[in-house]
Protein backbone atom coordinates (compact mmCIF):
# COMPACT_ATOMS: atom_id res chain seq x y z
CA UNK A 1 0.00 0.00 0.00
CA UNK A 2 1.28 3.44 -0.90
CA UNK A 3 0.17 6.93 -0.05
CA UNK A 4 -0.37 9.34 -2.92
CA UNK A 5 -0.72 13.11 -2.48
CA UNK A 6 -2.04 15.20 -5.29
CA UNK A 7 -4.42 17.95 -6.19
CA UNK A 8 -7.55 17.09 -8.11
CA UNK A 9 -9.89 19.78 -9.44
CA UNK A 10 -8.25 22.22 -7.07
CA UNK A 11 -8.57 20.06 -3.95
CA UNK A 12 -5.69 18.47 -2.05
CA UNK A 13 -6.10 14.73 -1.56
CA UNK A 14 -4.19 11.97 0.19
CA UNK A 15 -5.20 8.49 -0.87
CA UNK A 16 -3.82 5.09 0.03
CA UNK A 17 -3.61 2.73 -2.92
CA UNK A 18 -2.05 -0.55 -3.91
CA UNK A 19 1.03 -0.01 -6.03
CA UNK A 20 -0.72 -1.62 -8.96
CA UNK A 21 -3.87 0.50 -8.82
CA UNK A 22 -4.51 2.31 -12.06
CA UNK A 23 -5.09 6.03 -11.82
CA UNK A 24 -8.49 5.70 -13.48
CA UNK A 25 -9.63 3.25 -10.84
CA UNK A 26 -8.43 5.45 -8.02
CA UNK A 27 -10.34 8.39 -9.46
CA UNK A 28 -13.50 6.44 -10.15
CA UNK A 29 -13.63 4.12 -7.18
CA UNK A 30 -11.75 5.73 -4.33
CA UNK A 31 -12.64 9.34 -5.10
CA UNK A 32 -16.07 8.41 -6.55
CA UNK A 33 -15.59 10.78 -9.47
CA UNK A 34 -17.25 8.69 -12.12
CA UNK A 35 -17.17 11.20 -14.97
CA UNK A 36 -13.88 9.68 -16.13
CA UNK A 37 -14.80 6.54 -18.08
CA UNK A 38 -13.23 3.27 -19.17
CA UNK A 39 -13.79 2.10 -22.73
CA UNK A 40 -10.94 -0.30 -23.39
CA UNK A 41 -8.05 -2.26 -21.97
CA UNK A 42 -5.41 -1.34 -24.54
CA UNK A 43 -4.97 2.46 -24.15
CA UNK A 44 -6.85 2.91 -27.40
CA UNK A 45 -10.11 4.73 -26.73
CA UNK A 46 -9.34 7.81 -24.65
CA UNK A 47 -12.56 7.63 -22.61
CA UNK A 48 -10.36 7.89 -19.52
CA UNK A 49 -8.51 11.06 -20.61
CA UNK A 50 -7.73 13.58 -17.87
CA UNK A 51 -5.35 16.53 -17.57
CA UNK A 52 -2.31 15.93 -15.47
CA UNK A 53 -0.21 19.04 -14.93
CA UNK A 54 -2.03 20.50 -17.91
CA UNK A 55 -1.24 17.63 -20.29
CA UNK A 56 -3.90 15.25 -21.49
CA UNK A 57 -3.23 11.67 -20.46
CA UNK A 58 -5.03 8.36 -20.54
CA UNK A 59 -5.61 7.63 -16.89
CA UNK A 60 -5.99 3.90 -17.57
CA UNK A 61 -2.37 3.87 -18.63
CA UNK A 62 -0.95 5.53 -15.54
CA UNK A 63 -0.56 4.09 -12.09
CA UNK A 64 -2.21 5.99 -9.29
CA UNK A 65 1.20 6.41 -7.64
CA UNK A 66 2.38 8.35 -10.68
CA UNK A 67 -0.05 11.09 -9.69
CA UNK A 68 1.99 11.85 -6.60
CA UNK A 69 2.70 15.59 -6.42
CA UNK A 70 0.70 16.31 -9.57
CA UNK A 71 -2.27 18.40 -10.37
CA UNK A 72 -5.17 16.62 -12.02
CA UNK A 73 -8.23 18.00 -13.76
CA UNK A 74 -11.16 15.75 -14.57
CA UNK A 75 -14.48 16.56 -16.18
CA UNK A 76 -15.89 17.34 -12.76
CA UNK A 77 -13.43 20.22 -12.48
CA UNK A 78 -14.35 22.03 -15.71
CA UNK A 79 -17.39 24.09 -14.80
CA UNK A 80 -16.91 26.95 -12.34
CA UNK A 81 -19.24 29.17 -10.38
CA UNK A 82 -19.36 31.39 -13.47
CA UNK A 83 -20.74 28.56 -15.55
CA UNK A 84 -19.65 25.97 -18.06
CA UNK A 85 -16.17 25.78 -19.52
CA UNK A 86 -16.14 26.90 -23.19
CA UNK A 87 -15.47 23.32 -24.28
CA UNK A 88 -18.57 22.10 -22.42
CA UNK A 89 -20.60 24.85 -24.00
CA UNK A 90 -19.15 23.96 -27.40
CA UNK A 91 -20.21 20.32 -27.08
CA UNK A 92 -23.70 21.21 -25.92
CA UNK A 93 -24.35 23.93 -28.47
CA UNK A 94 -23.06 21.90 -31.41
CA UNK A 95 -24.57 18.52 -30.51
CA UNK A 96 -21.07 17.14 -30.04
CA UNK A 97 -22.29 14.19 -28.01
CA UNK A 98 -24.86 11.42 -28.20
CA UNK A 99 -24.41 8.86 -25.44
CA UNK A 100 -21.87 11.02 -23.64
CA UNK A 101 -19.52 8.17 -22.80
CA UNK A 102 -16.54 9.48 -24.77
CA UNK A 103 -17.35 13.11 -24.02
CA UNK A 104 -15.38 13.80 -20.82
CA UNK A 105 -12.20 12.38 -22.32
CA UNK A 106 -12.81 14.11 -25.63
CA UNK A 107 -13.28 17.48 -23.92
CA UNK A 108 -10.16 17.19 -21.79
CA UNK A 109 -8.11 16.19 -24.80
CA UNK A 110 -9.55 19.17 -26.70
CA UNK A 111 -8.60 21.58 -23.92
CA UNK A 112 -4.94 20.74 -24.24
CA UNK A 113 -5.20 20.91 -28.01
CA UNK A 114 -6.72 24.40 -27.86
CA UNK A 115 -4.22 25.61 -25.32
CA UNK A 116 -1.37 24.65 -27.64
CA UNK A 117 -3.15 25.69 -30.81
CA UNK A 118 -5.92 28.22 -30.15
CA UNK A 119 -7.22 28.34 -33.71
CA UNK A 120 -6.75 24.87 -35.17
CA UNK A 121 -7.83 23.84 -38.67
CA UNK A 122 -10.31 21.00 -39.13
CA UNK A 123 -7.45 18.70 -40.07
CA UNK A 124 -5.46 19.64 -36.97
CA UNK A 125 -8.48 18.96 -34.80
CA UNK A 126 -9.11 15.58 -36.43
CA UNK A 127 -5.51 14.49 -35.92
CA UNK A 128 -5.48 16.10 -32.48
CA UNK A 129 -8.34 13.92 -31.21
CA UNK A 130 -7.34 10.77 -33.06
CA UNK A 131 -6.45 9.08 -29.78
CA UNK A 132 -10.05 9.37 -28.64
CA UNK A 133 -12.76 7.16 -30.10
CA UNK A 134 -16.37 8.13 -30.42
CA UNK A 135 -18.77 5.51 -31.75
CA UNK A 136 -21.85 7.72 -31.85
CA UNK A 137 -21.32 11.13 -33.39
CA UNK A 138 -19.33 10.57 -36.57
CA UNK A 139 -17.03 13.37 -35.31
CA UNK A 140 -18.44 16.19 -37.52
CA UNK A 141 -20.02 17.92 -34.56
CA UNK A 142 -17.09 17.23 -32.25
CA UNK A 143 -14.93 19.16 -34.70
CA UNK A 144 -17.48 21.98 -34.65
CA UNK A 145 -17.65 21.89 -30.86
CA UNK A 146 -13.89 22.31 -30.59
CA UNK A 147 -13.87 25.12 -33.16
CA UNK A 148 -16.62 26.84 -31.19
CA UNK A 149 -14.72 26.47 -27.91
CA UNK A 150 -11.55 27.77 -29.58
CA UNK A 151 -13.39 30.85 -30.79
CA UNK A 152 -14.86 31.43 -27.36
CA UNK A 153 -11.51 31.03 -25.62
CA UNK A 154 -9.84 33.43 -28.08
CA UNK A 155 -12.66 35.94 -27.73
CA UNK A 156 -13.42 35.61 -31.45
CA UNK A 157 -16.87 35.68 -33.01
CA UNK A 158 -18.75 32.46 -32.32
CA UNK A 159 -19.52 30.25 -35.31
CA UNK A 160 -23.16 29.38 -36.07
CA UNK A 161 -24.50 26.35 -34.27
CA UNK A 162 -27.34 25.75 -36.72
CA UNK A 163 -27.14 22.32 -38.38
CA UNK A 164 -26.17 22.44 -42.07
CA UNK A 165 -28.88 19.99 -42.97
CA UNK A 166 -29.78 21.07 -46.52
Amino acid sequence: MREVRFKINGEEKVVTVESRTLLVHMIREQLSMTGTHIGCDTSSCGACTILIDGKSAKSCTLLAVQANGKEIITVEGLATAEGLHPIQEGFKENHGLHCGFCTPGMMLRAIELLEKNPDPTEEEIRWGISGNLCRCTGYNNIVKAIQYAGAKMRGAELPSTEPEFV
Binding site: G35, H37, E76, K92, G100, M107
Partner: peptide, 15 residues
Protein backbone atom coordinates in the same frame (compact mmCIF):
# COMPACT_ATOMS: atom_id res chain seq x y z
CA UNK B 1 -29.66 15.33 -21.45
CA UNK B 2 -26.39 17.04 -22.28
CA UNK B 3 -26.19 19.01 -19.04
CA UNK B 4 -25.30 15.92 -17.04
CA UNK B 5 -23.08 14.29 -19.63
CA UNK B 6 -20.81 17.31 -20.16
CA UNK B 7 -20.35 17.68 -16.42
CA UNK B 8 -19.44 14.09 -15.69
CA UNK B 9 -22.77 13.45 -14.00
CA UNK B 10 -24.11 10.72 -16.24
CA UNK B 11 -24.97 7.55 -14.39
CA UNK B 12 -23.68 4.57 -16.36
CA UNK B 13 -23.81 1.07 -14.99
CA UNK B 14 -20.18 1.02 -13.83
CA UNK B 15 -20.95 4.16 -11.80
Amino acid sequence: EDARFIQGKGNYVDD
